[in-house]
Design a protein around this nucleic acid. Structure first.
Lengths: 200, 200
DNA sequence: GGCTTGACTACACGATCGTGTAGTAGTTTG
DNA sequence: CAAACTACTACACGATCGTGTAGTCAAGCC
């Protein structure tokens, strides 16, 4: 695929613009003409390079997935809590995360596959760290969804905090808060069991 | 506003269809013609009753908010853990939640206000339950986002579990799993502090 | 009876969308 | 040098969108 050295070409600019606009406005909300304007090219060139809007989306999916795995690999070298540290560093990852989340919601197979791989990773992580929930798969799926939640509701969270979480400062703040959720047990296992029986 | 007795009118059917389609496909993804067809009326009638698509959306916002608060009030009578029990019962609430989440993501003020009210509620709840995070506001915002995350990623979670979480059974399963996240501390406060220093 | 009013439909409008076609400029290749 | 190829633009197409207009039909009121 493209090497980083080629990353100033029109094709790369179009792809980056697509990831940014798709992520912000959703797939349907960003037109090819918008993307072309954002990239500073004609709309025909988008078609020339990517064929169709759907193909452009698939190309963005592949690129975003590749980059995220790349960034994830870098993080695991630095930290040992990578499975739980979704918000660590790398502001580069933010637009990628936004795009992937949007792509998931619009039913992309590649993005969904990335989610499933994340669930698998969390599942293995719980095993190796001696965490034994009653429903390990469900637990892993819930954690995977939680990891992405602040990206989805970035505007709402920013408004609640009075601080833009897309900036480095706000990014760290909500990241810390999310970590804190995992440090304070809010319920005992007994309470959960009671609730389960109650609902049945 | 409308009483439940009037709820079989064409106006109510349009509103329900709009909430369902908006929730599933997003605001831009559901056209007025689609909604009209789903409600079994002409597209002109949608305009007759609601004026414009934006007005229809606002009407849906108001109705969904009202209904959710209503359902929330009923839940607090039955349970005492309502602040943490987003998935309890009421399958009626599911399409409403989906709609509200979509409306939030598309920048609705009413839906965002509902989120902020939720953050306030969680914040008060932590205080009264003696939970004292370092960043109470951030903690509450993170919890509020988490509460909604499984709705956003319902398709992905369902695929990961091999079980449709829009059904009662899957609904309960992921709900229990989400509860378990709050019972098992994954990190110590010390670890979080170390991470914070490391990132600064 | 006539007359208003509200629910409802059919149809046409301009705008915007994704896509298709034709063509230009510059580089490469034989 | 000519042919071929690539990057790129301009423009036109059909479809679909939200919206506007005109009109039908039935119920209620004078």
């Amino acid at each position: 695929m493209e090497r980083p050295a080629d990353d100033l070409t029109a094709r790369a600019r179009i792809r980056d613009a697509a990831i940014r606009l798709f992520g912000e406005r959703g797939i349907e909300g960003a037109s090819i003409r918008d993307i072309a304007a954002e990239a500073g090219v004609s709309s025909g060139l988008v078609r020339h390079h990517f064929g169709s809007k759907e193909s452009l989306r698939e190309a963005c999916d592949r690129y975003a997935k590749e980059r995220m795995l790349q960034i994830g690999a870098e993080l695991t070298q630095d930290h040992d809590l990578s499975g739980l540290d979704p918000l660590a560093l790398h502001p580069v990852a933010f637009p990628l995360q936004l795009y992937i989340v949007r792509s998931m919601m619009d039913g992309s197979e590649t993005a969904t596959a990335l989610f499933l791989e994340g669930v698998d990773a969390v599942e293995e992580w719980t095993t190796s760290y001696g965490i034994n929930p009653k429903d390990r798969r469900g637990y892993a799926a819930a954690l995977a969804a939680i990891k992405l939640s602040v990206f989805v509701f970035r505007d709402q969270v920013s408004k609640a905090l009075g601080e833009d979480i897309t900036t480095a400062a706000g990014y760290n703040r909500i990241g810390q808060a999310l970590m804190e959720v995992f440090t304070i047990p809010l319920l005992t296992q007994e309470q959960v069991d009671n609730m389960r029986n109650q609902e049945k």
